[in-house]
Amino acid sequence: IGSLMYASIFGNVSAIIQRLYSGTARYHTQMLRVREFIRFHQIPNPLRQRLEEYFQHAWSYTNGIDMNAVLKGFPECLQADICLHLNRSLLQHCKPFRGATKGCLRALAMKFKTTHAPPGDTLVHAGDLLTALYFISRGSIEILRGDVVVAILGKNDIFGEPLNLYARPGKSNGDVRALTYCDLHKIHRDDLLEVLDMYPEFSDHFWSSLEITFNLRDTNMIPGSPGSTELEGGFSRQRKRKLSFRRRTDKDTEQPGEVSALGPGRAGAGPSSRGRPGGPWGESPSSGPSSPESSEDEGPGRSSSPLRLVPFSSPRPPGEPPGGEPLMEDCEKSSDTCNPLSGAFSGVSNIFSFWGDSRGRQYQELPRCPAPTPSLLNIPLSSPGRRPRGDVESRLDALQRQLNRLETRLSADMATVLQLLQRQMTLVPPAYSAVTTPGPGPTSTSPLLPVSPLPTLTLDSLSQVSQFMACEELPPGAPELPQEGPTRRLSLPGQLGALTSQPLHRHGSDPG
Rank of each mutant, 00 (worst) to 15 (best):
G127P: 01
A132F: 13
L133R: 02
L133W: 01
Y134W: 14
F135C: 01
F135V: 06
I136Y: 01
I136R: 02
R138K: 13
R138Y: 09
R138Q: 07
I141A: 03
I141N: 01
I143K: 01
L144Q: 04
L144E: 04
G146L: 04
V148C: 09
V148L: 10
A151G: 11
I152H: 05
I152D: 01
L153V: 02
G154H: 08
G154P: 02
N156F: 12
D157C: 08
I158K: 02
G160P: 01
E161F: 02
E161K: 02
E161P: 02
P162H: 08
L163S: 10
L163D: 03
N164E: 06
Y166R: 06
Y166F: 15
Y166S: 10
Y166M: 06
R168A: 12
P169Q: 08
P169K: 10
G170Y: 02
K171F: 10
K171R: 11
S172Y: 01
S172I: 01
S172Q: 01
N173F: 08
G174Y: 11
G174F: 09
R177P: 02
A178D: 01
L179Y: 06
Y181S: 04
C182Q: 03
C182D: 01
C182W: 01
D183W: 15
D183E: 07
L184F: 11
L184K: 01
K186G: 07
H188L: 12
H188K: 09
R189V: 09
R189Q: 04
L193C: 06
D197H: 14
Y199L: 02
P200G: 05
F202I: 08
D204P: 07
F206H: 01
L210Q: 03
L210K: 01
E211R: 06
I212V: 12
F214K: 01
F214G: 03
N215T: 03
N215C: 09
L216C: 01
R217K: 04
T219M: 12
T219N: 07
I222P: 10
I222N: 12
G224T: 15
S228C: 10
S228G: 08
E230N: 12
E232N: 13
G233V: 10
F235W: 10
F235I: 10
F235T: 11
R237C: 10
Q238E: 10
R239E: 12
K240M: 12
S244M: 13
S244L: 09
F245C: 11
R246V: 11
R246L: 13
D250R: 10
K251I: 09
T253M: 07
E254N: 08
Q255M: 13
Q255A: 08
P256S: 11
P256A: 13
G257H: 13
G257P: 14
E258M: 11
E258H: 04
S260R: 10
L262F: 08
G263R: 11
P264C: 10
P264M: 09
G265N: 08
R266T: 14
A267Y: 09
G268S: 10
G268H: 10
A269Q: 10
S272H: 13
S272L: 12
S272W: 07
R274W: 04
P280S: 09
G282E: 14
S284H: 15
S284G: 10
S284V: 14
S286C: 07
S286I: 07
S286N: 10
G288L: 09
G288H: 04
S290K: 12
S290V: 06
S290M: 15
S291P: 15
S291R: 05
S294Q: 15
S294T: 04
E296R: 10
D297S: 11
D297G: 08
E298N: 05
G299M: 13
G299C: 06
G299W: 08
P300I: 02
P300R: 06
P300M: 01
R302E: 08
S304E: 10
S314N: 12
S314Q: 11
R316K: 13
E320K: 01
E320T: 14
P322I: 15
G324E: 13
E325I: 10
E325T: 15
M328Y: 10
E329L: 05
D330E: 14
K333S: 10
S334P: 06
S335M: 12
D336M: 13
D336G: 09
D336V: 08
T337Y: 09
T337C: 04
L341D: 05
L341A: 13
L341H: 12
L341W: 15
A344E: 10
S346E: 09
G347D: 11
N350S: 06
F352A: 12
S353E: 06
F354E: 07
F354H: 08
G356E: 10
R359W: 04
G360N: 14
G360R: 09
G360L: 07
E365V: 07
L366M: 13
L366C: 09
R368P: 08
R368T: 09
C369K: 03
A371L: 09
T373N: 08
P374I: 06
S375G: 11
L376C: 15
L377Q: 05
N378V: 03
N378R: 14
I379P: 01
P380Q: 06
P380K: 10
L381I: 13
S382W: 05
S382N: 01
S383E: 09
S383L: 15
P384G: 04
P384C: 04
P384T: 14
R386P: 13
R389I: 01
R389K: 11
E393T: 15
E393I: 03
E393H: 14
R395E: 04
R395W: 09
L396Q: 05
L396C: 03
Q400I: 03
R401D: 15
R401L: 10
N404W: 12
R405S: 04
R405E: 03
R405K: 10
R405D: 03
R405Q: 05
R409A: 06
S411N: 15
S411V: 09
M414E: 01
M414K: 01
A415T: 12
L418A: 09
Q419T: 11
L421S: 04
Q422Y: 09
Q424C: 09
T426I: 12
T426Y: 13
T426S: 07
V428N: 04
V428G: 12
P429F: 13
P429G: 08
V435N: 15
T436L: 09
G439T: 05
T443R: 15
T443E: 11
S444H: 10
P447I: 06
L449Q: 11
P450W: 01
V451Y: 13
S452K: 11
P453Q: 10
L454A: 12
T456E: 10
L457N: 09
T458K: 13
L459Q: 11
D460Q: 13
D460N: 13
S463A: 11
Q464P: 13
Q464T: 10
V465E: 12
Q467V: 06
C471A: 06
E472M: 06
E473L: 08
P475H: 06
A478G: 10
A478D: 15
P479F: 10
P479H: 10
E480K: 09
E480C: 09
L481M: 05
P482W: 12
P486L: 15
P486G: 04
P486D: 10
G494R: 07
G494K: 10
A498C: 09
A498I: 07
T500L: 05
Q502N: 12
P503M: 08
H507E: 13
G508K: 07
S509E: 12
S509T: 05
D510R: 08
D510A: 09
P511M: 06
G512R: 14
